[in-house]
Amino acid sequence: MSLEVTVASLRLKHPVMNASGILGNTPGGIIKLVKLGFSAVVTKTITPEPREGFKPPTIIRLPTGGLINAVGLANPGKGAIKELVAAAKELGVPIVVSIAGRSEAEFADVAGEAQRVGADALELNLSCPHTEGYGIELGADPRKVRDVVEAVASTTSLPVLAKLGLSDKVVESAGKALEAGAEGLVLINTVKAMFIDVYALRPVLTAGYGGLSGPPIHPIAVRVIYDVFKEYGADIIGVGGVFDWKTAAEFIVAGAKAIQVGTALVCNDRVVEEILDGLRKWLQHHNAKSIGELVGAAHKR
């Protein structure tokens, strides 16, 4: 039995990729992601120029589960894409370059560099919840989503994935992204949140606000995937709180063709392997020959 999937023209040997923001900012980090077993690697979000980001603490575990982070889109700038792509190519693994910008031109600029150096796909970060000018306000505005996706999709031949976060207009934004040329959607980004320390009487993250990830947001992601799949039947990569095969399978049944995993790596370096073992048994249970047969299965009831 094969776990092979094709999502937004990306042929993957299995459906589990890493979520952007996890380790994908150096060649060594890309090498680690491949060692962890991901079928494709996604870089940290890259902007045209390098960004330092916020001072630590930038990522911290929560007593209520999951993580909160506000890294501030720290990244090495578009000049580093080449060596990230080269590291993935050397290991024979497809690489998706996550990109962001303050304007359509900045998105298109980074996209151009990614294509030039041989990336396999682009993921547009339209939903970073903690960095002013880059973030969620973009993804929550369907017209802006359309404009950015169009600006990139019209100048690249690479598959374009639009990563959206939770907002009242996420279904509408997803529609605009598809209309504008996105081949797939990545749902969802972290959810804007805050963690306050009751001894220090202040937010723990230097940035104050941060993005919540991990199991606490999984049901939110399931709902968004379900709604968007129902509306458009699009190619969806589900992300948010997957930590085992069941939470991954739930995304598939809601409508996702592939899955991204991030926060679970904090507890479990074997998470990819464990998800794949579980998915194989799950396919057998349903007498399914491929993941594709179960994508969106919850909608047939």
């Binding site: 923001g21 380790l23 090498i31 680690k32 911290i60 890294v71 590291a87 991030g262 904090v266």
Partner: peptide
């Protein structure tokens, strides 16, 4: 930076070790 193995700031070059 994060101490959790995910931010990538303490990767030891191309060994990929954190």
């Amino acid at each position: 930076e994060c101490g959790l193995g995910i931010c990538g700031s303490c990767i030891l070059g191309k060994t990929g070790l954190r």
